[in-house]
Design a protein around this nucleic acid. Structure first.
Lengths: 283, 283
DNA sequence: TCAAAAGTGTTATCTGTACACCCATGT
DNA sequence: ACATGGGTGTACAGATAACACTTTTGA
């Protein structure tokens, strides 16, 4: 029943969740840091499309590997055998951003055999070799993975980004300058954006992307970024306010040469209620 | 890399896809019918929520196991290592209904650790034992599975139902009399129905459930079944016709004591076009 | 001829859309 | 004072909702 592939993990202080692939000879890794792949579901992973909003642009959280090529990936991870799929995604998100699920939703599972472009495999294998990965450990990494995709919408300001042990860098990449990602990760991002775009048609999701207090204009820019189209200012304002999920605050007075706009925040309770209902087919 | 669990498969004439669990002693199974679990992805399955429409009711395709308890399940199967997840679902659907994907869509992946109710496990294991399953084969079946759920909407008339080797019976069960299903299959059905209901808000999906030619009233009943609410006849008719995806035919004259309604069929081309577009956020 | 259900009409109301007007604010 | 952009008003087009009227059909 259990897998027999040995794999080398380093227990860091705050997590046992990340594989540690060392440039060091494995003899230099302390004994208590050695584990095998038993705790993980074979062939199963989660990938998180973590969306933020900054400078009126949508951004996606990406990691750069500690490899020669410096390939980019989505944050992701394996799933413990005693862990719900959702929990795995929540864990990954928590570890990269320090935030626990403001909005986290499974949108699609990617299960094509050729998620990994055949042309890409050689480079991938070479990269793993450069980390000192070999034998059964190599088998683990080069096996076929089916990956569940999760989207979350996050307030960038609240994040405390951390790389994982594979990666040298973690950053918010705007959609225009999204780097080439490994495997089908670019496709995963596109699918996630379509999902959110569709969701926004009938649910005011995405408000979680904004800081605590925001102006209607900022909210409008967010909608425009997700929907990829211009909206009418006046109509947007009315439409949003009619949802009756906002609290209006005192004015902002920042040094702009115009009338100071109101600040709004979300009334959590009414917002949740609205999310639960959605819209209906008319007549 | 490869799994080592032996499993016993019988190659039937038309498929190698189904595990055959024999009451016979395994010595009576011909040698060429013996395989191990190597061809399958461990811990991964697909489940199909196959929806039809008959007597103005939505129906779901279910199978009854050849076990003592006669437990019911959704049609489902394992995924070959060299097979796309989608392909696995298409294959399962094809084998049960004889139909190749009129509409087949992955809607959610079920990955809770306790998909299998702990109280249920004992009975499940006993059932497997009653089939003569033991040892590593038992391990295969009692391992944790993550399952990708697929919905399809099918014209019942076109189906040619076949049981699989596990099952004694296959039938269309109306939602009101849907039996208790194993694992979280009842939950899977509910999730699929919610998904379709949501989809119908902005796409005229589900028309594929009806036979080639149908009346507007029949279409309305279908909508009412999916949306779980009454619709206004006149308004519904206008709304549908305005979609401009139907061809009107000569009348039906069946012996009803009323004005004979028109028959309509779908104009495939315009229908596909509409599906591709959907609706947009207004303003 | 009559009940049933199709097809179509009518109307008030609501929503979407476009754009205008006035007001507050920092330069 | 004035350019900028917020807040709100208005008016038209189209969609929605409720229901009425007429027509066709088999019994």
């Amino acid at each position: 029943m259990t897998q027999r592939y040995k794999i080398y993990l380093l227990c860091t202080n705050d997590t046992k969740n990340f594989l540690y692939i060392s440039h060091m000879n494995k003899k230099t890794i302390p004994d208590e840091a050695l584990f095998d792949t038993d705790p993980f579901m074979p062939g199963l992973s989660v990938d998180c499309v973590t969306i933020g909003f900054e400078d009126n642009k949508l951004k996606v959280l990406v990691l750069k590997w500690k490899t020669l090529g410096g390939l980019w990936t989505l944050p992701g991870g394996f799933v413990f055998k005693n862990e719900d799929l959702n929990e795995a995604a929540i864990r990954v998100l928590k570890e990269r951003t320090g935030i626990k699920l403001p909005f986290l939703e499974q949108f699609h599972t990617f299960g094509a055999v050729n998620r990994r472009d055949p042309n890409e495999i050689d480079g991938f294998i070479k990269n793993l070799e450069s980390f000192g990965i070999e034998g059964e450990l190599m088998n683990w990494f080069s096996q076929r993975f089916v990956s569940a995709g999760y989207v979350s919408l996050i307030d960038i300001q609240k994040c405390n980004l951390k790389t994982d042990v594979f990666s040298a860098e973690i950053k918010w990449a705007s959609l225009e300058e999204l780097p080439d990602l490994i495997l089908d990760h670019n496709h995963i991002v596109k699918t996630a954006l379509d999902y959110i775009k569709n969701l926004l048609q009938y649910l005011p999701v995405g408000i979680t992307l904004l800081p605590e207090k925001f102006t209607m204009k900022e909210l409008q820019y967010l909608y425009e970024a997700i929907l990829q189209k211009k909206l009418d200012r006046g109509n947007f304002q009315r439409k949003m306010l009619k949802l009756d999920i906002f609290n209006r605050h005192e004015k902002m007075m920042e040094g702009k040469a115009n009338k100071a706009p109101y600040l709004y925040s979300i009334d959590k309770e009414r917002y949740e209620k609205l999310l639960a209902n959605g819209y209906g087919f008319s007549s």
